[in-house]
Amino acid sequence: MQSSDGETPPEAPRLESADLPTAEGQETLPTYTGPGFVTNNPELASLTPAQLYELNQGLLDEAVPQRPLIDQIVPMAVLRAEYENGSASFTKQIDYLVSQSYTGIRRTRGDGDCFYRSLAFRYVERLMNAADPALAVGSAVSTLEASLPMLEAAGFQKLVFEDFYDTFVSIIKRIVQPEADGTTLTPLLLLEAFQNPEVSNSVVVYLRLLTSAQIRTDPDSYQDFLFHPELGELMTPREFCETFVEAVGKEADHVQMTALARALKINFSVAYLDGRSADGHVDFVNFNDGIQDELEPLVLLYRPGHYDILEKQSEDTVI
């Protein structure tokens, strides 16, 4: 059974109605007797195979537990296996990433927040892995503190963003400051925090607000790039931010990614695994080049419509 979460391109081809098996002994309509389906129900018998298929998919979506908001690292071989019966251009590109010493990917749920969630997780993780965590944490926290006036200048009410800010900053501070129970942040606690919807979504929303505030308070730098993704029309910074940055589940595009890199004063790159390269190499696009820090690189993996984290650590050494 295949869940239709849309995260594993290329997807198995969807069954056409004509391909659906015709059950023996049925009078008129061919009836789908696929997994988990009861066909002796008169209401269902009147549906066309296509309708039944859709209904069945709907049931499967509800029955199959969703992917965690963010998952453990899996080796590149697992990703490669998903494409082995599909497109050779994808497997070639995965082999290329392995040759560049990428060892695994950490997946996020395909809920429209995947860019922000991937970035946030990796952002905290590399502070934790820094050679001098106290310095890295101090620098990150002061950047975030300094962003608060920008949020107010963008017109956000303090009561709206303060809880999200506190949640994000307290995770970062916990790298060096023990909680009441004496524990500091570990890889496992970080993963648990980002799998908790309230904590994870608070961090995602804070990054959305930072992105929006960066665009709203510096309109000259962005206004020529604020296109409606479907209509292609230019939008005002306010319209763009309300519709495509602040609203829940709206995917990030280049403009949002650029703005967020500037707001966080970080650089990151995105590896495009799109099956389009003739020789199998993978294009990396850098955002906010020129920032120098001592941290591990922050690299995201893009597959059409979805972002995950690319890691150079193996699953044996970390959670």
Binding site: V205, R208, E242, T243, E246, A247, V248
Partner: peptide, 9 residues
Amino acid sequence: KDQWSPVLT
């Protein structure tokens, strides 16, 4: 509906 944002109150 789909344009909800947590900045709304």
